Every structure is written in structure tokens, then in C-alpha cells.
Simulated scan of single mutants.
Amino acid sequence: MSAPDAPATLAVESAPEADSTPDVETAIGDLQTHLNLIFARTRTLWRESAARIAPDLQVGGYKLLTFIERAGTASAHELAERFEMDKSVISRQVRMLEELGLLESRPDERDGRLRVLSATPTAREALSELRRDHSVRLHTVMAELSPEEIRAASKVFRLLSEV
């Protein structure tokens, strides 16, 4: 779950050829309501996950750490671009992650002026444990759905991610 914060609401513009019957409008309204609930639950899950890694870890730091861990390495410049954050915010979060023993920094081999950031073994293990727990939760929730229903839900999320 290493993406920038989702919007509080999702605006959906109707395509000219889209069916705008009351049933479709009701279904889209229900979808928007449930997406907003998912976004709220995601923010709560980020807070809970950050606290499990380290009590003082902020959500922003957690998201940076998960991105760095999945990518293998990253620079502060890459993080600022990816998360659309000011470099000073990135610097503070990186410093906190280093102080918590979750992030290592070393000079870039190609350009010694740059720093390469990577997750520590402690961070990698903690994130791996979180992912296992999250996977168990997801499997438990999805157990009542058929594979076809899960594929349909996945298609909806893929289409929404392309908007």
C-alpha cells in the first residue's frame, strides 16, 4: 500500500455514451460511498501499521519506508518527486527513519553528492511481517467471494487506477 494519499472523494465524470439510468446512478453512488470508506480505512491501516513498526513513526515516514523497501533503494529526490512532497519534508522523514534504525543512507557510487537510501534488515523484517498479516486479513475477507468476483473487483480497481 505504498501510494500517495487517496482523495477524500472520487469525482466521476459520465462519458457521453454512458448509461445514466437511475439504477446506474445509484450503483455509482454506492461505489463512491464504499471507495470513500476504503480510503478512510486505508488511512487508519497506515497509522496502525506505522505504529507497529515504531511508536513514533509517522504515516508519511511509513509510506516512504514501504516505497524504499519495495524499490530496493531510492534517493531523496526520487521520493520528493514520487510523493509530491517538499524536499525538506522528505529530509525530516528520512532523518527520523534513520534515527529509528529503519533506514540506511550511503553515498551514491556514481555521484558522491547524492545519498542512496535503503531499508535496514530490521525494517525489512517488520514490513514483511505486516504484509503477511495484511495478506491474511485480505484472504479472510475475500473468502466469501468466488474467483470470478475477485477478478471483477480487480478489474474495477484497475480501471479506476487509470482514471
Rank of each mutant, 00 (worst) to 15 (best):
A3T: 13
A74K: 02
P7G: 00
V116M: 15
A143F: 06
E125L: 15
A6Q: 10
A27Y: 01
E129Q: 14
T26H: 07
A74I: 00
T44S: 10
E109T: 13
T122R: 15
R41K: 11
A15G: 14
E148L: 13
E81W: 05
L102G: 04
E125K: 15
A153Y: 07
I68Y: 04
R113F: 11
E129I: 15
P121R: 14
H139P: 00
I150G: 04
I28C: 08
G72V: 01
L117S: 03
G61S: 05
I38F: 11
D111T: 15
M96V: 02
E25S: 08
A11Q: 12
A3Q: 12
L31C: 03
S135T: 10
S49Y: 03
M1C: 06
A18D: 10
D56P: 03
A71T: 00
E162N: 13
A40V: 07
G29A: 12
H139L: 13
D56Y: 05
A152W: 04
Y62H: 06
L35S: 08
R95T: 13
P147Q: 10
D5C: 07
L31M: 08
A119T: 07
V59E: 12
V24G: 02
A80Q: 05
R70I: 00
M85W: 06
A80V: 06
H34C: 08
A152Q: 05
I53G: 07
I28E: 11
D19E: 04
A76Y: 04
D19M: 03
I38M: 10
E84K: 14
T120K: 13
K87F: 03
S75G: 13
P7D: 04
R115E: 12
D19Y: 03
S146I: 10
A51S: 14
F39R: 12
E81A: 10
A152N: 04
P147D: 14
A71W: 03
D56I: 04
L160A: 09
Q58R: 11
A80Y: 03
A123C: 10
V24Y: 00
H34P: 02
D5A: 14
P22Q: 05
S20I: 01
G72D: 01
R52P: 05
A80K: 00
M85P: 02
E144K: 15
